[in-house]
Design a binder for these strands. Structure first.
Ligand SMILES: [Mn+2]
Ligand SMILES: [Mn+2]
Ligand SMILES: [Zn+2]
Ligand SMILES: [Zn+2]
Lengths: 162, 162
DNA sequence: TTAAATTTTGATTATCTCTATCATTAAGTC
DNA sequence: GACTTAATGATAGAGATAATCAAAATTTAA
């Protein structure tokens, strides 16, 4: 199809990701659509953890001519998650947040004051998780870990204002 | 108030818990009500991880004369969670499950096939979590960890039927 | 013990997130 | 380009949780 969508600033890393996505689509006889690509691209360009709603907002702003519906966002996120290309985080009832899972696995530290999310990986923990699953005869598919608390910055602000 | 509610089989542990709850209520000028106590008691007696709906069901069966509304369940669970007396687990969009936080802290291993939840504690992981928070200048309030996968039993069944 | 002040309750409605449906449109195939 | 199939957007529908509000219960202070 013939769109004047601006696909500039594509890095090699993104091209690889996109190729992987197209391959995945082909393998499952799914069709390639601009909506799907735009969703992948927007996730890639954002280093935030996005709610489907926020992602939809971004896409409406950047590609208004597509008139992408919210249903397509949900559908594509599920598709991407099922294929392990994105990961979702659940924080209580505030719904899910998605991020591109193409980066390495990591865990999250979440500030309960300002909502800032810090990512980290700890090999010792990863190692123990596998060990524990093994002990229970459990076939681990996935795992997630969150540390909740007050971030460095909020601690500083609290010191000043409280 | 004058109810014939059956509060038998109260352990000392429960009495302490209840006292703590009453103290909490008083401190915040909240009022003591039978509904609140029954919710605490039912959570205490159940060793399951309960959805608000399941908890409501249990209470309707055990204390039908109270005609406890679902709204009160939600309100009280939020109250208890805010005061760190119960903890909730989020399973994506399938809502939350609650458990009394009075027992020792632990993490969860969740079977994606049958939903069974296995609890565990690993000191090495606990230790690392504190260390990591410290490294980031983060004041940890809480943390949670979930391992998702196929439990021993479901693995066996899969072997037989697949 | 009673009366006043305040909070909580249950019922209900509203909201928010996510899924299902379906007619229309767009991709992939030849 | 025509044919087949899948994807899309709009919208209705579910399910979980929050908000509203009049009635009831609890606490407090006579
Ligand atoms: Mn992340
Ligand atoms: Mn538990
Ligand atoms: Zn913060
Ligand atoms: Zn299982």
């Amino acid at each position: 199809m013939n769109s004047q969508t601006d696909f500039t600033q594509r890095t090699v890393e993104y091209e690889i990701l996109l190729a992987r996505f197209k391959e995945l689509l082909k393998k499952n006889t799914y069709k390639y659509t601009i909506q799907r690509e735009v969703i992948l691209e927007t996730l890639y360009k954002s280093d935030e953890h996005l709610t489907p709603e926020a992602l939809h907002q971004l896409i409406k702003e950047k590609f208004p001519e597509l008139k992408t519906g919210i249903a397509t966002i949900y559908r594509t996120l599920s598709l991407l998650e099922d294929s392990d290309m994105v990961t979702s985080l659940s924080f209580g009832s505030q719904g899910k947040k998605y991020e591109l899972g193409a980066k390495e696995h990591h865990d999250h530290m979440i500030c309960t004051k300002c909502g800032t999310i810090t990512e980290f990986v700890d090999e010792a923990i990863e190692e123990r998780q596998h060990r524990i699953a093994e002990e229970f005869g459990f076939e681990m598919q996935d795992h997630s870990m969150q540390i909740y608390g007050i971030c460095k910055n909020c601690k500083k602000l609290r010191f000043i204002y409280d």
